[in-house]
C-alpha cells in the first residue's frame, strides 16, 4: 500500500484491530496486566468465533494438526501400515528395468504408494517420514524469521529516522538477492562438522538458519508498517504523556498488539519455508541420504517421471497438501483477526 493509505488506516484503526470493539478495548491496555489478559481473551474469543465459522480454514487447521501428528508418530504409523523408510525391497523391482513390478509403480495394500525404482523402498513410509524434515524446517525457519523480523521491524518502526532508513535499506538489499542461489551456496560451503553438530542435526540446523535468515525481511517489513501505525495511536500517546519510557511502551503497548499480525504472517510463512526447503532439497542441498525428504524424493524422481510417475506424485502431492493446509489456515486466521483484509 502507499504511504498515504497507511496513514489513513492508522488514524482510523490499527490494521488488525477489531472494528467496533477497538474503541473500548485499547484504552484498557494501559491499565494493569490482569485486565489486559481479559482484553486478550476477548479479542481471541472474537477471532476464534470467526475462525470457527470458516469451515475451510478449520479443515486446513485439522489437516495441519494431522500432519504434525503424522510427523511425530511416523515410526508408529510406519510400523502399523508400511515398512521402515530406509529398508530395501528389491524383490519388488524388475532386475532388468530397475523399475517396480506390478501396476503403477508397485502400488498394493502392502505398499500403499508403490515403491521407489532401483531399490524398492516403501514410498508411503518415506512420505510419512519426509514430513518430519519439512515441518521441522518449516517451523524452525519461521520462528527464526519472526524473531529477527519482529526485532528489526519494531526497532525500525518505533525509532524511525536514520535507524529506520538503515534497516529499511538492509531489507531492500535482502529482497534484491537471488535467495535460492545464496542459500544453495551457503549451505554448500559449510563443513560436515560445525557448531558442535554433525549429520542430519547439523544439516537441519543449517537449513533452518539459511531459510530463516534470508526470509526475515518479509516479516520485518510488515511489522515495521504495523509499528509505524501503532506508534501514532492514542494509547501510545497516552502512555507517553503519563511518562512511560520507550522500553515500557515497546513491551507493554506495542508487542501485545503485534501478536495478531505476527501469528497470521507466521502461519503464512511456514508453507513458504516448506516450499523453500523442498526447493533446496530438489537442487541437492539438504540432509544426507538415506533420510527421506520430499524435495529430495522429487529430485530423485526426475529421471523416472515417465516410467515411474508414482515416484514423483507421492512426495509432490504431500508437499501440495501440506502447503495448501497451512495456506488455508493462514488465510482463515487473517480473515478472523482482520475482517478488512477480506
Amino acid at each position: 500500500m502507499t504511504g498515504l493509505e497507511q496513514g489513513v488506516s492508522a488514524t482510523l484503526t490499527a490494521p488488525l484491530d477489531v472494528t467496533g470493539t477497538a474503541g473500548e478495548v485499547t484504552p484498557e491496555a494501559t491499565l494493569s496486566g490482569a485486565e489486559r489478559a481479559i482484553q486478550g481473551r476477548s479479542l481471541g474469543q472474537i477471532a476464534w468465533m470467526r475462525l470457527r465459522r470458516d469451515r475451510v480454514a478449520i479443515a486446513g487447521g485439522i489437516v495441519v494438526i494431522l500432519l504434525i501428528l503424522m510427523a511425530i508418530f511416523a515410526p508408529l504409523i510406519v510400523r502399523v501400515i508400511g515398512h521402515p523408510p530406509n529398508e530395501w525391497h528389491q524383490e519388488m523391482i524388475d532386475p532388468t528395468l530397475s523399475t517396480a513390478k506390478g501396476v503403477f509403480g508397485g502400488v498394493s495394500l502392502d505398499f500403499l504408494f508403490g515403491v521407489e525404482p532401483l531399490n524398492g523402498r516403501d514410498l508411503f513410509s518415506r512420505v510419512v517420514y519426509g514430513a518430519r524434515v519439512s515441518i521441522l524446517v518449516g517451523f524452525g525457519a519461521t520462528l527464526l524469521s519472526v524473531v529477527i523480523g519482529t526485532f528489526f521491524g519494531v526497532v525500525a518502526g518505533f525509532f524511525g529516522g536514520w535507524v529506520d532508513s538503515v534497516i529499511s535499506r538492509v531489507m531492500d538489499v535482502f529482497l534484491a538477492f537471488p535467495l535460492l542461489l545464496f542459500a544453495m551456496s551457503l549451505a554448500g560451503v559449510i563443513p560436515d562438522n560445525a557448531f558442535g553438530l554433525t549429520g542430519d542435526g547439523l544439516r537441519i540446523a543449517i537449513l533452518i538458519f539459511v531459510i530463516g535468515f534470508f526470509n526475515w525481511p518479509y516479516v520485518g517489513r510488515i511489522i515495521r508498517g504495523q509499528t509505524l501505525s501503532l506508534r501514532e495511536r492514542e494509547f501510545v500517546d497516552a502512555a507517553r504523556s503519563l511518562g512511560a519510557r520507550n522500553g515500557y511502551i515497546l513491551r507493554k503497548e506495542l508487542l501485545p498488539n503485534l501478536v495478531a499480525p505476527i501469528l497470521v504472517y507466521a502461519t503464512l510463512l511456514i508453507p513458504t519455508n516448506i516450499l523453500f526447503e523442498a526447493a533446496l532439497a530438489f537442487l541437492g542441498v539438504g540432509v544426507a541420504p538415506p533420510t527421506a525428504t520430499w524435495g529430495g524424493m522429487l529430485s530423485s524422481a526426475v529421471p523416472f517421471y515417465s516410467v515411474a510417475p508414482n515416484f514423483m506424485l507421492a512426495p509432490g502431492l504431500a508437499i501440495f497438501v501440506t502447503v495448501l493446509a497451512f495456506n488455508l489456515l493462514g488465510d482463515g486466521l487473517r480473515d478472523a483477526l482482520d475482517p478488512r483484509a477480506r
Binding site: 526447493a279 530438489f282 526426475v302 517421471y305 515417465s306 509432490g316 501440495f320
Partner: peptide, 22 residues
C-alpha cells in the same frame, strides 16, 4: 489460485512433462 501458490514449480513442471510430453 490457492492451489497454484501451494504447488512447487518443479512438481507442476514434472507433472506437465509427464502428461503433455510423455
Amino acid at each position: 489460485a490457492l492451489a497454484g501458490v501451494s504447488l512447487p514449480v518443479f512438481f507442476t513442471g514434472l507433472v506437465s512433462l509427464a502428461l503433455f510430453s510423455y
